[in-house]
Amino acid sequence: DNLVIALHSYEPSHDGDLGFEKGEQLRILEQSGEWWKAQSLTTGQEGFIPFNFVAKA
């Protein structure tokens, strides 16, 4: 599955970004460039995340 774990917390800075906490698990929905579309397994919310803040779970 496309699961990743957050290496750092991220505060959203643009509409459509997904904020998350360090250690949170996310499911990657789309990989494109440096911003990936993801869904939080904690909150169920979707949005874009910086790819370098996460690692394969």
Rank of each mutant, 00 (worst) to 15 (best):
F53C: 12
A6M: 06
A57R: 07
G16K: 08
F20N: 00
W35N: 06
E30Q: 09
Y10D: 00
E30V: 09
F20Q: 00
H8M: 14
W35D: 03
L41M: 12
D15L: 12
F51A: 15
N2D: 11
E21S: 13
F20D: 00
K56R: 10
F51R: 15
E11W: 14
L41K: 00
L3D: 04
N2V: 12
I49Q: 00
A55F: 09
L18I: 07
F48D: 04
L18F: 06
A57K: 10
P12F: 05
Y10R: 08
A38E: 00
E11D: 09
G16A: 07
N52Y: 12
H14C: 15
S13W: 10
Q31K: 12
K22H: 05
P12E: 04
E11M: 14
T42Y: 07
R27K: 10
T42W: 13
Y10H: 06
D15P: 15
Q25T: 15
N2A: 08
L41G: 03
V4L: 05
H8T: 10
N52A: 10
L26G: 01
W36S: 02
L26N: 01
T43K: 02
Q45E: 13
I28Y: 01
G44F: 08
A57H: 12
E30H: 08
L41N: 04
L29E: 02
G16W: 15
K37N: 04
Q25Y: 15
A55Y: 12
S40K: 14
G23H: 05
L41S: 03
T42C: 09
E21C: 13
E46C: 14
V54W: 03
P12V: 06
I5H: 05
G47V: 02
E46A: 09
V4H: 08
H14E: 08
S13I: 15
T43C: 04
T42I: 13
F20I: 07
P12H: 05
K56N: 11
V54Q: 02
E24F: 02
E30W: 11
H8R: 14
Q45T: 07
L3C: 07
L41C: 11
G44I: 02
L41P: 04
F20A: 00
F51D: 06
L41R: 02
H14R: 15
S13Q: 15
H14W: 09
Q39R: 10
E24Y: 01
G33F: 03
L29K: 04
N52T: 11
Q39S: 07
V4K: 01
A57M: 15
Q31Y: 13
K37L: 15
I5M: 06
W35H: 08
F53S: 10
L29G: 02
Q25L: 15
P50F: 07
S32C: 15
A57W: 14
L26I: 06
R27L: 14
A6P: 00
L41T: 08
S40R: 09
A57S: 10
H14K: 15
L29S: 02
A57N: 11
A57E: 13
V54Y: 03
I49P: 01
A55L: 09
Q31V: 08
T42Q: 12
A55D: 10
E30P: 00
S32R: 12
Q39W: 05
F53D: 04
V4D: 01
I5L: 07
Q25F: 15
F20K: 00
F48M: 12
A55S: 11
F53L: 13
R27E: 05
S32G: 12
E21K: 14
Q39L: 10
I49G: 00
L7W: 06
S13H: 13
I49S: 00
Y10W: 11
R27P: 01
H8V: 14
K37F: 15
F48S: 05
I28N: 00
L3H: 05
L29M: 07
G16H: 15
W36G: 03
D17P: 03
I28Q: 00
G19T: 06
K22M: 08
A38T: 02
A6S: 04
S9Q: 07
I49A: 01
G23E: 02
L18G: 01
W35V: 09
A6W: 02
E34K: 14
W36M: 07
G44P: 01
Q39V: 14
I5Q: 04
N52I: 08
A38N: 00
W35T: 07
P12W: 06
G47F: 06
F51H: 13
Q31P: 05
E30A: 08
D17F: 15
E11F: 14
F51S: 14
V4C: 07
I28C: 05
H14F: 11
S32N: 15
D1R: 07
L26P: 00
S13D: 09
R27Y: 11
P50C: 09
G44Q: 07
R27I: 13
E24C: 04
I28L: 10
W35E: 05
Q39A: 07
Y10L: 06
K37P: 03
T42A: 12
A55V: 14
Q31S: 12
G19N: 04
G19K: 11
A6F: 04
